[in-house]
Design a protein around this nucleic acid. Structure first.
Lengths: 150, 150
DNA sequence: TATTGTTATACTCTATAACTATA
DNA sequence: TATAGTTATAGAGTATAACAATA
């Protein structure tokens, strides 16, 4: 049977890992100019267009520990980029929301980031580019579908 | 002009990053069964079919600090998976080579890793799959072409 | 003087455990 | 008793600086 023969390609991780590092290296100087850390930008992106009900839920959504984002939220709140409103129905939880100022900051950073990314994607012909983005969106969703926590 | 309008897609980093983490999480248990660390496997993969002349060159090739791989090489040598032969022409440098045993270990781990990866790629239709791999190989090479150190 | 490999050290990032306040 | 948020601490991973040997 020919199934599961070793294929003749580099491991996915050997390609995706370095690519991820490159993308982060491209983001870093942009975010620095916008006074945002990587985690802060990730939080802003995750809050785009929706309210999140607990910090734990937000942490899980972005693949972080709940203790790790606390100081991030503190700073974002100090900078008036997000609001942390206590839930009247359960005073243990915070309702997390982007401010208008926060959405502007997020959008400004994203525009610049995607400009760099477009430069990278420019290497690809338009068919491969479309297929790449389509495949990436499917695979990036995998952690939460294929390998959902039991 | 319509150039550089904000596109309507998630940031590449927001998709590639989590995907990289997923792939590493898939590799981890496999490598553990084969008594390999992630860095050890990366070294074996980098030495596949070629001799590398210095540890610094190897470190750079895999995006690691030269001090970081020393203990990795120590263990690989202890396990007889690689050889570190002093270069007769320059006694400061080590010639790094996979042993047969090392190549077998690498191949065995890779077969299993790619089996898991194939499962993931199974979500894609064959055209997208081919385009995805093609695009990934082009973009993963970018760090060393587009953004070469000056 | 520059480079290879090495060691020791310091630093950053992250996870763990323990606490409070609410439910 | 369980959960949300917080804090403090410990651990892993990583980079920096200094060293010996060789060129």
């Amino acid at each position: 049977m020919a199934a599961h023969e070793p294929t003749d390609r580099p491991d996915l991780a050997a390609m995706v890992g370095p690519l991820a590092r490159l993308l982060m290296a491209l983001e870093e100087p942009v975010l620095e100019r916008h006074d945002l850390t990587m985690w802060a930008y990730t939080v802003l992106s995750s809050l785009r267009g929706r309210e999140v009900r607990t910090q734990s839920a937000l942490a899980e959504a972005i693949g972080a520990d709940k203790t790790r984002i606390i100081s991030v939220l503190d700073h974002l709140q100090d900078d008036r980029l997000i609001t942390r409103r206590p839930d009247p129905a359960d005073r243990r939880v915070y309702l997390l929301c982007l401010t208008e100022r926060g959405e502007r900051a997020r959008a400004a950073a994203q525009t610049e980031i995607q400009r760099h990314e477009e430069e990278l994607l420019g290497q690809l012909n338009s068919a491969d580019r479309a297929a790449f983005l389509r495949a990436l969106q499917a695979l990036a969703a995998a952690p939460f579908t294929v390998f959902a926590p039991s």
